[in-house]
């Protein structure tokens, strides 16, 4: 199977260099990749929740470098801007808002961790085996004009992908509205707090305020 996919292209690049004579780009890629992977592993294993977020920054940054090495420079900058810049900051805010403990937290991992480890290792073995089996002779030709420069990206994005791009903006808007609705405090809570004297109304308000909780609860 894997050969059948790779064979037409493999024939075109049949005279690729072996793994034992790496190019400079490859060496850089492997080194950065190891750092990225290490940061990712620390992210999912560390007991300090805030550290996990910070190690995530390292991992995402490493990936940005990998994008650069693959000549996709626009995506690399987007990665840095959005992931490192905004998403990790959001996650940090989330950690703070949920009063995540600072320092080592003994129960950061659930009781499921050994099962998780088994599944993850098995998945890694299977995926690596399949990927290596399929693509061990495939060669990426990084020569020629850059394929991911801002000019090129702008050209294909707004020439070929403009409609999905607009649809995506609607999706982001919907997400924005949804996030606001979800995180907004309910008016009824305020009503209860302003008039705490009537037990009946408190019960009423309580049952209303319970609304969102009920969905996951009953």
């Amino acid at each position: 199977m894997t050969h059948s996919i790779a064979s037409p292209l493999a024939a075109a690049v049949a005279d690729h260099p072996g793994f034992l004579s790496p190019t400079g780009v490859e060496i850089a890629f492997v080194l950065v990749g190891l750092a990225t992977l290490g940061a990712a592993v620390i992210t999912v294993t560390t007991r300090q929740l805030v550290h996990a977020a910070l190690w995530l920054v390292v991992a995402l940054g490493g990936l940005a470098v990998e994008y650069l090495l693959l000549t996709a420079e626009f995506i690399a900058w987007v990665q840095v801007l959005i992931y490192v810049g905004s998403i990790v900051v959001l996650l940090l805010f989330g950690l703070m808002l949920t009063r995540a403990p600072i320092g080592r937290s003994p129960d950061a991992d659930s009781g499921n961790r050994w099962v998780a480890l088994g599944v993850a290792l098995a998945a890694a073995a299977a995926l690596v085996w399949i990927v290596v089996d399929a693509f061990r002779t495939t060669w990426i030709d990084l020569e020629g004009p850059a394929q991911g420069s801002t000019a090129v990206t702008g050209a294909f994005l707004f020439r070929n992908w403009v409609l999905p791009f607009e649809a995506l903006s609607v999706l982001l808007l919907a997400a924005l509205v949804g996030a606001i609705v979800l995180s907004r405090k309910h008016d009824t809570d305020a009503a209860v707090r302003s008039a705490p004297d009537t037990a009946a109304r408190r019960d009423q308000g309580r049952s209303k305020g319970e609304g969102p909780g009920k969905e996951g609860q009953s």
Partner: peptide
């Protein structure tokens, strides 16, 4: 550059994330 390098790296990163989803207790870590 060999395609195997980014492909393997992606596979390993994916499985690391998988482990995190399955093993982490805090929803934000997930």
């Amino acid at each position: 550059m060999h395609l195997a390098y980014p492909a393997v790296l992606a596979a390993l990163l994916f499985c690391t994330g998988l482990y995190g989803v399955l093993a982490r207790r805090n929803a934000i870590l997930v």
